[in-house]
């Protein structure tokens, strides 16, 4: 039965194609505070398309403008909150981040573009959020920050902000990064939930198309944490969980092995794109 119908479908799709045009990413350039952002980069070997594209290119003009202008960007206050936390002494050791790392503009430059990275202690990839927790528990004698709480996203954004404009490039040669990448890839193409969709169903097969009011991008992570016009300041694992929930599947826990594998793989998919933290998205 299948073969027969595909012919019919091809015909139908052919007829239909004329009547709707996929809204492609815009042809526009992004500069933030005078720094040029790389919003299009040559795709790393192994992706089924030539270019990787920032989610910024899929946004409406007003949303793009909000990100362009640091004074307008609603998430810049969160970055400033992050700076306060950077300098705040916490924990039994009487230290702040600044005690060890000094001026973040110097010490954190490029950090946000190189995570997740291999952590030999826990033998898994860690992201900036987990690195913060590692410093807090091992150096500061402070509690780990719970997911999305206690200024975790603000501090993460403050750290990533110091890589603004720098191209994403993670080191897969360290430790077992490669096998986590493989697991992440597997997850990216695994269909989940009652709706039976994978990340690739939306962000690879249908990037550029509309799913109801949403213009589907490649689902790149280079802007996180982002300011969402819909729901405010939003972390990456919150976004991952939301997309998975939308397939009507159980959501993996933030920072679980599953989501760390996914973050490793999806970050790689955006190799070469500038860090845009904090990006503005619908």
């Amino acid at each position: 039965m299948k073969r027969l119908l595909i012919a019919g479908l091809a015909l139908a799709a052919g007829l239909a194609a004329a009547s709707w045009a996929a809204a492609e990413p815009v042809d526009d350039t992004l500069e933030i505070d005078g720094k040029p952002m790389i919003t299009r980069a040559k795709a790393p070997e192994g992706l089924p398309f030539d270019e990787v594209l920032s989610g910024w290119l899929y946004r409406e003009a007003e949303t793009r403008d909000l990100e362009r202008d640091s004074f307008e960007n609603p998430a810049m206050v969160s970055v400033e909150d992050g700076e306060v936390l950077w300098n705040k002494v916490d924990g039994t050791a009487g230290k702040s981040c600044a005690t060890c790392h000094g001026d973040a503009a110097e010490s954190m430059k490029g950090i946000g573009a190189s995570y997740p990275k291999w952590d030999p202690d826990s033998k898994r990839p860690i992201n900036v959020e987990l690195q913060i927790n590692k410093c807090r528990t091992e150096q500061m004698g402070a509690e780990a920050l719970p997911f999305d709480k206690g200024g975790q996203n603000e501090l993460t954004a403050y750290i990533k902000y110091h890589s603004l404009g720098m191209p994403v490039g993670i080191d897969l040669a360290e430790g077992d990064m490669q096998s986590w990448w493989e697991q992440g890839k597997e997850l990216y193409y695994t269909r989940t939930g009652q709706l039976n969709m994978a990340c690739a169903s939306c962000h690879e097969a249908n990037a550029g198309k509309f799913i109801r009011a949403d213009h589907l991008s490649q689902g790149q992570v280079n802007g996180f944490p982002v300011y969402r016009l819909k729901s405010g300041f939003t972390s990456l694992h919150n976004r991952f969980r939301g997309c998975i929930r939308d397939t009507r599947a159980e959501m993996p826990k933030a920072f679980s092995d599953e989501l760390m594998a996914l973050e490793t793989y999806v970050t790689w998919r955006g190799t070469g794109l500038s860090i845009e933290t904090p990006a503005v998205r619908p």
Binding site: Q194, N196, S201
Partner: peptide, 22 residues
Amino acid sequence: VVFTDETVMPGFYSLEVGKGVA
């Protein structure tokens, strides 16, 4: 069944679903 397994259209009266259904 009609198109291919690759289609993104959900099966609305099917129990052939993805992993980890909520």
